[in-house]
Nucleic acid binder design. Structure first.
Lengths: 196, 196
DNA sequence: GTCTATAGTTCGATAGAC
DNA sequence: GTCTATCGAACTATAGAC
């Protein structure tokens, strides 16, 4: 933590780590306080509720992520280049904002039932529209196969990329760029050997 | 429910549905009792604890699933045929035992920390060994690309197949065999169009 | 900014009647 | 096999001192 990191952000980071590891519902306010070296009541000097903590973590992260996506989709890359860039941006997010991605993957379904987290639905919709537009453009330009169901292909890509947060740990096994290389190799060309 | 279904199995099915929908920790014994039309105390005539319910659901399912896998791996199919069959068997499991698969996907990480669910670790290990042996055989026979990291390829296949339980609903959109067709098409050959 | 103390709620599980 | 009634523990959040 840098010297300029506020106490609030420091506590938020500790809470995020625990939410990611054990799930939001399964992490108690006392767990967060213990990990922070303070009493549970003291947390309420910084936050109104446990929900506010996870809300701030998710909304801050998602706002930044979609700005990155918008840049890529608005660029002059071809479809393959855009798919490549979006996938790599997603793996980068797993590396740099691991806790936030893990929380979204594990707890978004639970959180979305509350009004406070309605924006998660909106972000899912945007993400879906971005990908289906990209895949649709790819089949029109002839870069992508036209015999695949766009909806299933979207789910395939989405799941494959984000679920990696379950096992990827920064600084272990592979660099995140290597993981992205391999995933894109399979996604674009498959696992069978080609003799041409 | 058939007439021969025991009351215990009936309650187990109701509990499994709720565990799959809301998560194990987030489903209360009172939720299960309400959905069953009885009082929470009455559940303890059939089960010693909430943990026993999820234990029986997972262990019964996994035992059957691994018997199916063993048959496929022990067959005389070539590697591509075995990969095809294992993936299809997994999608069939998502269709026929949706709740059990969903519980495993969402809560296995939490449950594995308890001694009672240590067998989940053993099953994960067996699954990992089955897949890496299969992929290794495929690169030796020349059926599969040799430039991919076997460990990453394993994770790619595993995640892609099982995560479908998050969105697949039996009798909606696509038959499960169609989903398997599309997933295998991408897995084997990728999403780019090939001009030969 | 953190402490102590606790209110108010909900949880898993038990005991005994029917 | 289900009921009523309840225990003891754990939870989120609050109040007020320092």
């Amino acid at each position: 933590m840098s010297a300029s990191t506020s106490r609030r952000d420091e506590l938020l980071g500790i809470a995020g780590r625990l939410f990611a590891q054990r799930g939001f519902k399964n992490t108690t306010v006392r767990d967060i306080a213990d990990a922070s070296g303070i009493q549970s009541g003291s947390l309420y000097h910084h936050f109104d509720s446990k929900e506010e903590m996870v809300d701030e973590l998710l909304s801050t992260f998602q706002t930044a992520l979609f700005a990155t996506y918008d840049d890529i989709v608005g660029s002059d890359l071809d479809v393959r280049g855009k798919v490549d860039a979006v996938v790599r941006a997603s793996f980068d997010a797993i590396e740099q904002h691991h806790d936030e991605v893990a929380i979204f993957q594990n707890d978004a379904g639970y959180l979305m039932q509350f009004d406070r987290f309605g924006y998660l639905r909106g972000h899912n919709k945007r993400f879906h529209e971005m990908w289906t537009a990209l895949l649709d453009e790819g089949t029109r330009t002839g870069e992508l196969r036209s015999d695949l169901d766009p909806e299933l292909t979207y789910r395939f890509i989405r799941d494959t990329v984000w679920v990696a947060v379950r096992w990827y740990r920064p600084g272990r096994d592979h660099a995140v760029s290597e993981v992205a290389d391999q995933y894109l190799a399979i996604l674009f060309d498959g696992i069978t050997s080609k003799e041409s």
